[in-house]
């Protein structure tokens, strides 16, 4: 069973934590402090496992981020290593070349995705497509809600648009459809595959 998932960067800053076993807030801080000290100082060629107070912590480094999972003594470490990779691949697909910054600003999305992969400390879905489909279904809700809201913000937008073309120009700099495109792409895939 996975006891917790921890994402920390090289400076030991926390990017995401998910606890599947009960830990008090105090214990959590202690765990993070101790583990970030141990893991971020380990050399690149050493094993990706650390034995830690009767548990094992499997970690894997992606660019500047460490993904760590704490497991029981008799779990299969290599498998956990691949579960981490599985998660990262799904994140990568979702965000499109995911980077640390994506996770910083969208940590709640990273949580939702994690919730579709792990539940109660067990791997619940090993098919990337199934996960992607569920996330896309949830995102379509967000889109729908946004459309509703935008009816209000449209009014504001129109008002501001009138002021100057400059504002609109600034707006155009943003690849605004990045996420929605991503969302549609998945549904496209689904249509083609099924």
């Amino acid at each position: 069973m996975i006891h917790f998932v921890l994402l920390i960067n090289r400076q030991g800053k926390v990017r995401l934590t998910k606890w599947y076993s009960p830990y008090s807030q105090k214990e959590r801080s202690k765990v993070i402090r101790e583990l970030s000290g141990v893991i971020t100082t380990r050399g690149p060629k050493l094993c990706n496992f650390v034995e830690w107070t009767g548990f094992k912590v499997v970690y894997r480094r992606y660019a500047s981020l460490y993904f760590c999972m704490c497991i029981d003594q008799d779990d299969n470490e290599l498998e956990i290593l691949e579960i981490i990779h599985h998660y990262v691949e799904i994140l990568d697909r979702y965000f499109g070349s995911v980077c640390e910054l994506d996770l910083i600003f969208n940590f709640h999305k990273a949580y939702y995705i994690l919730d579709e992969i792990l539940i109660a400390g067990e791997l619940q879905e090993s098919s990337k497509k199934t996960v992607a489909r569920l996330i896309a279904a949830q995102d379509s809700l967000v889109e729908a809600a946004k459309e509703q809201e935008s009816s209000i913000s449209n009014i504001i937008a129109q008002v501001t648009k009138r002021f100057t073309a400059e504002a609109a120009e600034i707006g155009e700099h943003f690849p605004a459809e990045r996420f929605s495109i991503q969302g549609y792409r998945y549904t496209d895939v689904d249509v083609c595959n099924v």
Binding site: F95, D102, I104, F105, N106, K109, V142, E143, K146, S150, S153, A157, T160, F163, T164, E166, A167, A168, E169, I170, G171, H173, F174, P175, A176, R178, F179, S180
Partner: peptide, 26 residues
């Protein structure tokens, strides 16, 4: 105007859907 534009952009931009305040915090 710049801030308005920025906020607009963020409103339409799916990923960073939070307010300026929160982004500043992060």
């Amino acid at each position: 105007l710049k801030t308005i534009g920025r906020e607009l952009a963020m409103g339409s931009q799916g990923g960073f859907g939070q307010s300026k305040e929160f982004l500043d915090l992060v």
